[in-house]
Computed example of a mutant assay.
Amino acid sequence: MIGIKIDLRSDTVTKPTAGMLEAMMTAKVGDDVFGEDETVHQLETKLAATFNMEAGLFCPSGTMTNQIAIKCFTQPMDEVICDQTAHVYRYEGGGIAYHSMASVRLLNGPRGIITPEMIEPEINDDNIHYPNSSLVVLENTVNKGGGACYHLAQIEPIHTLCNIKGLKLHLDGARIFNALVATGNSPKHYGQYFDGISVCLSKGLGAPVGSVLLGSKEMIRKAVKIRKAFGGGMRQAGFLAAAGIYALDHHVQRLSIDHDHAKSLSAALKQVNYVVSVMPVATNIVIFEVAAGFKAENIVHLLAEKGIACNTFGPATVRMVTHLDLSSEMIDRAIEIILHLHPSAHK
């Protein structure tokens, strides 16, 4: 993107820091398909312990960890329950149908946050006409919900319901550390509520590649074989795993800076005439709706001309995401551009 200096498209655009590059270049590696890469093993063990889970599996992407989990927890003709905004449904290429041959029951939670009261009526009875309800998937934070996040107090009753009804519970933790920093919850408590957790390293934490799937030892043994069938077996993957370890050690607590930056952008957007509303900012995602007469794609184009990259997120919505490659000076400059942008309305 020539001319773009302030990249707010996503927190996936970050580059490794000098310290992360050093950790990558000095990593001890082996063939991970043979189980011989000690740095990969260290990352998997570290994250499993962090979330009080038995085992972990390093994969190239969060889409892969989510789809492996869904395949582990379902059989063909089963049904997955999730919100209609869920990444596993909207942005993973139809993988639930393609890989697991399962259908999806969609809920409509406020900002993507679903509750036991929404879930229970959608759990199918044992009836020859219905798919078997076998899995509930939560997303934390909710991308389409503007970074809204679950508190553990909201997760516990969903876990209880799933236990009573015999369903598995998986967490798409694409930005789980953003949620933990925002809520003050401890990751140690997550293991008791979820059968599977996907932890992404390449978003807010700033690693270049990778997610880790967490679960029981039995589930991860199954997941290893599914990963192989998906083409996700990697060899000297420790170079990538080292970046993840560095990110966990150095980039978690600083996420609060990204959250503050997002709130500052939100405050500026609320002051301009071309924005009609901004979703409440909980973490590092800002989603705003353009006012009547303006076009989201036009706003994005004009911001790009001024040096800000962001994305349309619907016909009338725009998304901005803060991350560790954005300094306070860059955010101040972005705010100045937002406040002085004068797009033309098209009635």
Rank of each mutant, 00 (worst) to 15 (best):
R90H: 13
M101L: 15
N108P: 00
R105W: 00
Y89C: 03
L107I: 07
H87D: 10
P110W: 00
A97P: 01
I113F: 09
R90E: 15
L106R: 07
I113E: 06
I113R: 10
P110H: 09
A97C: 03
H99W: 14
Y89G: 00
G112C: 09
Y98L: 14
N108A: 14
G109F: 04
I114N: 01
E92V: 10
Y98H: 09
G93M: 10
P116I: 04
S103G: 13
M101V: 09
A102P: 09
P116W: 08
H99N: 13
G112P: 12
A97V: 08
A97T: 12
P110R: 06
L106M: 11
P110V: 02
G94L: 03
M101P: 01
P116L: 05
A102Q: 05
I114K: 01
T115Q: 10
E92A: 12
G95C: 11
V88A: 14
G95K: 05
R111S: 11
T115E: 06
G109C: 02
M101T: 08
I96M: 04
S100Q: 05
I114M: 05
G94N: 06
V104H: 02
Y89P: 01
G109A: 03
I114C: 06
A102M: 06
R105V: 10
E92I: 05
T115K: 08
P110Q: 14
A97K: 12
M101I: 02
L107M: 08
A102C: 12
L106Y: 04
E92C: 13
R111V: 08
P110N: 11
R105G: 11
H99V: 12
A102I: 01
V88I: 15
R111G: 05
I96V: 07
H99L: 12
H87T: 15
I113D: 08
G94R: 06
P110D: 10
Y89L: 07
E92Y: 09
G94T: 08
L106V: 08
P110M: 01
A102V: 03
Y89A: 03
N108G: 10
L106H: 04
A97F: 13
P116S: 07
Y89T: 00
H99T: 07
G109T: 01
L107W: 10
P110A: 12
H87E: 08
G94I: 04
I114V: 10
H99R: 14
I96P: 00
I113N: 06
G93I: 08
G112S: 07
R90S: 13
T115R: 08
R111Q: 11
L107T: 07
R111C: 00
G109H: 03
G93K: 08
I114F: 06
I113G: 03
L106C: 07
G93C: 05
M101Q: 15
T115W: 05
G93S: 10
S103Q: 15
G109K: 03
G95S: 15
H87N: 14
G94A: 11
